[in-house]
Every structure is written in structure tokens, then in C-alpha cells.
Amino acid sequence: MQYTSSILVAAASLITSVSAHGFITSPQARLAGDAMKAACGQQVYNNQASDNYGNIQGELQVTATQTDYNAAECNIWQCKGFKYADNTANVQSWTAGQVVAFKFDVKAPHTGTANISIVNTATNTIIGSPLLYYSDFADNSRTIPANETSFSITVPSDLGDTCSTAGACVVQHYWNAASIDQTYESCVDFTVGGSGSSSGSSSTAATSSTPATSPVTPTSSSAATSSVAAKAVTTPSSAVPTTLQTVVSSKAPSLTSVAAAATASPEADDDEC
């Protein structure tokens, strides 16, 4: 009976993991490694090492049969549990005001929302406001717009020393495909205003072929402390700040200001940050 149960859990995990995929492909995002394995357990590690495009719900499913899963240490809702310690060679060195080009691969579309935010890894909260927000992301009823897979961010100018140490901050792409109850996160480690603890790799200023977007000034140079901000990173919630940047694109006219979505119930998933 226990053997049968394990097979069913593994099968459910496989179904979940192949339903939809998405991940940052440039700059280099965090990947699974030994530190993740130690914190999240062998099966969660296997789940993501075999397919880093997979979703958080797929990871959580396999924890049902694990004895080596440490929820507090894994912190699975931050970068899907991927650890800085496994990615010290991939730290980007940026400067305030720098425009950085990103590539995101949507292997299989499923309608949801998404945002790109700077996250304080110590508190697992968004610093200031998300840099980009998509009210209709990876909609499987239409062709994926160019600015969902190729976009630029402008490094905020008022981060102070918050992100001067490697591992302290990440740029996190958060895609909540509420239509199928799947959540995808990918994170890029970076430093601003300091050398950090790793030499890492340097990303030069770049422009994207997607429509230009104006810089976002964070509401605070320190991590946001409100319960709304915390939910925005850790668990699905539609309660989000109302000062997000509007993305304007002729190819993606449905990308709007998040302020229009901020009146939804906090328990709803479809406008999560």
C-alpha cells in the first residue's frame, strides 16, 4: 500500500511539473544544488534538478513522502527553494540606474499574472514596488507577446546598501498561473553598490527590443514590512501596492496598471505578486 501511494504521489508530481513551464534564461538564474538538497530534501531536489522550469506546487506534492524536507530551511516560496550557496558564481554586478536585459522562456503558456521584483532574501519581501507587472501573462488564448519573454529592468537608484552583499537580494520573476493553480519563480542574484562576497559575473547595460519602460522608484530602500508586501512574495494574494509601473505595448494591450486589480479579495490568487 505504501509503495502504491508513493507511485501515485510521483505520478501526480510528474503531471504537475509538465503542465506548464517558465524560467529566466538570461542573466543566469539560480539553479538546484547541494545546499537546496540539504534544506529541501532529496525528492524536491530531484524534482527541480531534472526540470528547473517546474512549479512550486509540484515540489510541495513530493514532500508528502519525504522525511528530509525542512520547511523552514527550504523556504520553498522564495526562488522555489533554490539557494544562493549553490549559485555564488552567478552573481551579477550592477550599478544604480543601469538598464539590464532579461530573457524569459515560456515553454507552455497558461493564463495568469506575473511580476518582476527585487526581493530581500532575509525577509522574503519585495523591496519597494515591483519593477514590472503583467495583468495577463502567458495567456494560452493568444500568441505570447514579445515583451513577456524579452524585457528590461532599470536598477533602482535608492537601494542604498541593502543589496551590496551577494545573496542579500534577487530579481525574482513570479508567475502565478491561477488558471491551473501553478506558481513559477526564478531568481537572479545581484549586487549594487558593493562587491559582495563573490566575484560573480558582470552584466553590462543593455536595451531590449521590447517597448521602453520608465524606471520605478521603490517606496522604500529597505524591505517592505507590511503584511501585504510579505504575502506578495510568500503566498498567493491579490492585495498589492498601487504604485506599480504600467507596461505599455502595442503587442500586449492587456498589460495594465496593477492599480486596477488591487481591489480584489486578498484571498484570491489571480492578481498575486
Rank of each mutant, 00 (worst) to 15 (best):
L8A: 15
V171C: 04
P211A: 07
G54P: 00
T225S: 15
P145I: 04
S203L: 08
T121C: 02
A85F: 00
W175R: 09
S197L: 11
I144R: 10
C74W: 00
A224C: 15
N55P: 03
V106Y: 08
F23C: 06
K80T: 06
V216I: 00
W94V: 06
D51Y: 09
N120C: 11
S195Q: 14
N176G: 12
A29V: 10
G112Y: 06
T263Q: 06
S257C: 05
A101I: 11
A39E: 07
T113M: 02
Y134H: 07
P266T: 05
A230N: 13
D139K: 15
S179D: 09
I153E: 08
G54S: 12
T207Y: 04
A178M: 01
F104Y: 15
S265A: 08
G128Q: 11
N75Q: 05
A223Y: 02
S26Q: 09
E73P: 10
Q42Y: 10
T210S: 09
A260C: 01
S141T: 15
L131Q: 07
S5Q: 12
A11Y: 06
I127Q: 08
Y133D: 04
Y184Q: 08
A259W: 01
I15K: 03
A38C: 10
A166R: 04
T219N: 07
S141A: 10
C74V: 03
A260R: 09
T111W: 04
W94M: 09
H173I: 11
G160L: 11
G112H: 03
S257E: 01
T235R: 08
P130E: 13
I76Q: 00
Q98T: 03
G193R: 11
I180T: 13
E59S: 04
G22P: 03
A261I: 13
S203Q: 01
N47Y: 09
A89E: 14
F190K: 10
C74H: 02
S227G: 03
A32T: 14
L14T: 05
T235K: 10
S221Q: 09
G97Y: 13
A212R: 15
D105R: 03
G33A: 06
V18D: 08
P266I: 02
D105E: 13
V258T: 12
Q2C: 15
T243M: 07
A85E: 14
S197W: 01
N55F: 00
A10M: 12
Y53I: 06
Y3E: 15
T165N: 13
